[in-house]
Amino acid sequence: MTEKLSDTGRDTMLAPLYATGWTLCEGEDAICKTYEFADFIEAFSWMTRAAFWAEKWNHHPDWRNVYKTVEVKLTTHDVGGLSSLDAKLARKLDAL
């Protein structure tokens, strides 16, 4: 079972993500990032690849797509905040 990140876990797992453009979402225990692509097809293709990983890990992002932009929010609803699954999925999204 996944647990909510401790203060030490937050420092260790989230600091590298902040360096790649992730931020804490305002008013929530979640991280957010906006990805911009060349066009809609590139954005949607990235979302499709991301969806396979989200399904494989049973950890699904809250996201919104408008044309070539994808806004992503990650949190673990089962623990009421950020967990290691959020950091893991964020790293994968950045790698895609």
Rank of each mutant, 00 (worst) to 15 (best):
L14Y: 11
L14N: 05
L14S: 07
A15K: 15
A15L: 12
P16H: 13
P16S: 13
L17C: 02
L17S: 08
L17M: 09
Y18M: 14
A19Q: 15
T20E: 10
W22F: 03
T23N: 07
L24Y: 06
C25S: 11
C25M: 01
C25A: 11
E26I: 08
E28I: 01
A30P: 05
C32Y: 05
C32S: 14
K33M: 09
K33T: 01
Y35S: 06
F37P: 03
I41Q: 14
I41M: 13
E42K: 15
E42G: 10
A43S: 10
A43R: 07
F44K: 06
F44Q: 11
S45M: 02
W46D: 07
W46G: 04
M47D: 01
R49Y: 01
A51N: 07
A51Q: 10
A51D: 08
A51V: 13
F52N: 12
W53G: 04
W53Q: 15
A54L: 09
E55H: 07
E55F: 00
W57V: 09
N58R: 11
H59E: 12
H59N: 11
H59W: 05
H59T: 06
D62N: 10
D62S: 13
D62K: 03
W63K: 04
R64I: 00
N65G: 10
Y67K: 10
Y67Q: 08
Y67A: 13
K68M: 04
T69Y: 10
V70F: 08
V72Y: 05
V72D: 01
V72G: 02
L74E: 01
L74C: 03
